[in-house]
Design a protein around this nucleic acid. Sequence first.
DNA 1: GTTTGTTTTTAACGATCGTTAAAAATAATA
DNA 2: TATTATTTTTAACGATCGTTAAAAACAAAC
Lengths: 217, 217
Amino acid sequence: MNRTKKKKSTKRKQTREKILEGAIHVFSNYPYCTASIRMIGKAAGIDHPLVNYYFPTKSMLFEEVIKQVTDEYFQANISWINGLEQLDPETAVDLYIDRFFDFAAKHQSALRIVALNMVQPEGHDDIPGYEQVRNFFAETKQTFINAIPMHGTADEIETFTNVFNTLAINYLGAGNYHASILGLQPGSPEYLKWVKETVMLVTLPQLRKLIHGNKQK
Amino acid sequence: MNRTKKKKSTKRKQTREKILEGAIHVFSNYPYCTASIRMIGKAAGIDHPLVNYYFPTKSMLFEEVIKQVTDEYFQANISWINGLEQLDPETAVDLYIDRFFDFAAKHQSALRIVALNMVQPEGHDDIPGYEQVRNFFAETKQTFINAIPMHGTADEIETFTNVFNTLAINYLGAGNYHASILGLQPGSPEYLKWVKETVMLVTLPQLRKLIHGNKQK
DNA sequence: GTTTGTTTTTAACGATCGTTAAAAATAATA
DNA sequence: TATTATTTTTAACGATCGTTAAAAACAAAC
């Protein structure tokens, strides 16, 4: 009896999961309005009205997609912090940032969805879930601050984390664009190496100041 | 006789110009696929099939829009370089960057169009004019290099100009997003001040090295 | 004033869109 | 096995899309 009940629940979950995966894929490649339910149905291997059976509106589907990819991100974020407090600050930073970029390189959906949807017209209704698009940025900054003890004014910390985050979203979320300009293959080890080195080279002086505070002044 | 001919030519130019202005406005607010001919017609104050009379396809209109906004940018760029060679390097840099940000703040169409359209799916046809979206980035970097004599390896120069450009496109092209996260008004003097200071603070150490070469080592 | 050329407006096409409703298929229950 | 519940598929709706064609309006030429 329990097995039978589980079977139905499993089938329902499987279909829902298939739709979500298809939707994540499509919403990671097209801005909200361009991504269509028919595209998502095709990506999920189902007929498109079935999307409406499981997610009554496109809005609700998009919001669920954003929630899922950003939750995944923040769960991973928590795990990167593990073990850092036993290390000296510079080693901790190196390790955290290595973990950050490794994960981001392999899970680009969140960054791509943000990069695809961040620019919205003034004076019009935001796309559904836009608050989450915005919060992703703010919360990613905050987790950096939680992970790395920094000594500086709030403005200094804001500047650093803002720039770091902006570069990461751009070089990884819009990786195809930047890689093609550089003549590299998007997602290739060479490109990812370039991203990490570039971001670190430019942000490192400021980051060093924040790690050590005014000790060096 | 010549005046009559001029009058017709003027009327045609005026309508064409009105359509282009409407198109620039709409393409600066929506990604290519979302921006519709009906929106553009409305923004230009005409009936939408008239857009097709002056620009046979949406593609051709978009390409003309991109060409116009980026040409405007590069013409302005040339003017910012004037007078720099008589100044010492640091003053020249300050002046150039002031001019850069002042212009960019007042003419955001190019940056917004780039930010709205840079992420494109792999393995599908690019949107029309995508080569120009890409070239804008490359050429903006190049004009920086032309304006400011820098001493470093090609990689170092690439890193700096790439990061500088990425931050500018983001903070100005996606200014609404970033301003709202910071709790500032987009386009306000406070926000523009924040942008300039943030970009300069983070890129300045690297820029100083490039201006002075290895003299300080 | 009439004819010709150009521009603008109106109407409509075929296509895709998100969504709904109903039929069909499948699964669960008695 | 029959009935009920759930899921999937099919068909279609009203809406918008880029575009085309034709009518109307305007302008220029004779």
